[in-house]
């Protein structure tokens, strides 16, 4: 039996639309895949899904009716992981959700391999979200915007924006995901998603000095000083240090890369 692959645009709406199509067309062996991951294969039937808000809404509404709030969270957060086969794992979870007599418990069956796998992925995504809450380092630019660049392992920026909005309600800020080429900007009233085109890829991990406030460097020096002074040398434990602050994040951390 040939599998049918639904190819979608990578958005959450697109994914939900694909789920709708799977059910509407009663496909027996469905697969859902992002366009960027898809490679045409002789043995597959494939179909391009056109994202349809109406269809996506219908699926999301049905999920809302029967799933627990934790399960909804699980579905969205797992999706943000961008793992290559996450769509199929989620499709498995949704099929179970739509057919079981105990839909409220569906995300808690940790003896089901795939459900357990999804819960582990969600844990990874949540950890990454939490890391970004911690590792964002704002630099004040001349136009008075606190600006930070990040490069998270998963697409967690949508999850971070509420946290930063609650916290920095009285300052303009911009957090830019340089891997996914978009950012969120808070203009003192609301959050906007911004896409910035850079003409070259150089210096994406640092903001050029001429755009920063004159005192910005001095504050970074103070922070570095604090970081060094608060360390207890006789308890040195670099293994633990690196476990908590993995090296891939260092280039964005003032205290690790220097000023």
């Amino acid at each position: 039996m040939k599998a049918t692959t639904f190819i979608y645009d990578g958005t959450f709406e697109g994914f939900l639309t694909s789920v709708f199509e799977v059910y509407e067309k009663k496909v027996v062996y469905p697969k859902i895949m992002k366009q960027e991951h898809y490679k045409a294969s002789f043995f597959d039937i494939s179909e391009v899904v056109i994202t349809d808000t109406h269809k996506a809404d219908r699926v999301w509404k049905r999920i809302n009716e029967i799933a627990s709030s934790n399960a909804k969270r699980t579905i969205y957060h797992a999706f943000l992981s961008e793992q290559p086969t996450i769509e199929n794992d989620l499709l498995y979870l949704l099929k179970k959700l739509f057919s079981t007599s105990t839909p409220k418990l569906i995300d808690k069956d940790f003896s089901d391999q795939i459900i357990l796998k999804i819960s582990k992925i969600v844990k990874m995504v949540d950890r990454e979200k939490h890391r970004m809450d911690a590792f964002v380092r704002f630099k004040l630019t001349l136009d008075n915007i606190y600006t930070a660049i990040i490069e998270p392992d998963f697409n967690v920026l949508p999850l971070n924006s509420v946290h930063f909005k609650n916290r920095y309600a009285d300052q303009k800020w911009l957090i830019y995901d340089s891997r996914r080429k978009y950012g969120v900007f808070y203009n003192l009233i609301e959050i906007q998603t911004v896409e910035i085109e850079f003409f070259n890829n150089i210096a994406l991990d640092k903001i050029a000095k001429e755009y920063l406030c004159p005192n910005e460097d001095a504050f970074q020096v103070l922070w570095k000083q604090y970081f060094d002074s608060t360390n207890i040398v006789s308890r040195k434990n670099l293994k633990l240090h690196i476990k908590h602050v993995p090296k891939r994040y260092w280039k964005y951390l003032v205290e690790k890369r220097g000023v």
């Binding site: 911690a134 970081f227 360390n231 207890i232 434990n237 240090h241 602050v245 205290e255």
Partner: peptide, 20 residues
């Protein structure tokens, strides 16, 4: 619309070389 919020969970912004 002031500055700051401490109603959420705690956040460790970085770790010293002794792992704290």
């Amino acid at each position: 619309k002031g500055l700051g919020d401490s109603s959420g969970m705690g956040i460790c912004h970085t770790y010293t070389e002794d792992g704290r």
